[in-house]
Nucleic acid binder design. Structure first.
Lengths: 155, 155
DNA sequence: TTCCGTGCAAACAATTTGCAATAGA
DNA sequence: TCTATTGCAAATTGTTTGCACGGAA
């Protein structure tokens, strides 16, 4: 149950001077056993499956701590609440504005853009934290002339 | 005062069967005379400078309509509320996670990524609606080894 | 023993909604 | 006239905060 990344996270808390609590361990374990893309609410459900009494505010505070310690990060995928994942799982998201489908793509896809931006502006894009909107292959084929079709529902 | 894009927006409302109201005209004009990147709250201030009695809920409803009619769009820049701009002003935003600076870049910067994504996945990215996070040239130089420096404050 | 971490409830910001009154076409 | 649009107030959603208590170190 205590996988390597759970242990690493706990060690990171300890090294930072933080205390290892039941609540924090529970949040790490819930993140570890779920896939990524979890909202705070979904993560809370996962936590509550094992520890029903942990407070939602504590989960938020724990996630905030994790982000400071580079243990976990949130990303914005389309509209709606932030979604959380452990730090070792770096990839990107394409969100279809029409059908809301989320497509994961590897970090390397961004290499050409990364190089171009660094050359042009010196800006270094982060390998997490943002998603791209557009239309997936099927929806693009279905609405070839409507670049903003479905926009109002997905934004 | 009634610039070309104000007239075009009004015509788009008329063509869609919507009514031309004082409120809607006021929102278009406020968008037209301000720069982009306005939050709904800032836009409301701009509207209220001319028409103090227009309701905030109406402004939200008007923006929703404008988005459906491709008159205006919102973008997510870093954390915080959505920001609004007229449809003819297409560009992208880089947000520095450390100093919150916003850098505008032309749409063409994304051409390499656009081509790659369409080839790899068929996904068509939209020329608006998302921003990219990272570190600007100065902040990247100041913290070369900390890819996530400042993350907690900007997310 | 010391504070850090937590629970609870309340505050918060941004937005959305229901419904009756109003005003474009 | 007729119904889309608006105002108002209340509801929602996601998240944060103050404060007193309890538990890691």
């Amino acid at each position: 149950m205590a996988t390597e990344r759970v242990e690493e996270a706990i060690e990171a808390i300890r090294l930072s001077g933080g205390r290892i609590t039941v609540d924090r361990r529970a949040v790490i374990e819930a993140l570890d056993r779920s896939d990524d893309h979890l909202t705070a609410e979904q993560l809370a459900d996962a936590v509550w499956a094992q520890h029903p009494d942990i407070n939602l505010a504590t989960i938020y505070r724990t996630l905030e701590l994790f982000e400071r310690l580079d243990i976990a990060f949130h990303v914005h995928i389309g509209h709606g609440p932030s979604r959380w994942h452990l730090a070792d799982d770096v990839h990107h998201h394409l969100v279809c504005e029409v059908c809301d489908k989320v497509i994961e793509i590897p970090d390397s896809t961004f290499d050409p853009l990364r190089v171009r931006l660094e050359t042009d502006t010196g800006f270094v894009i982060d390998p997490h934290h943002f998603s791209l909107s557009g239309r997936c292959a099927e929806c693009a084929a279905a609405t070839p002339d409507a670049p903003n079709a479905g926009e109002a529902s997905q934004g």
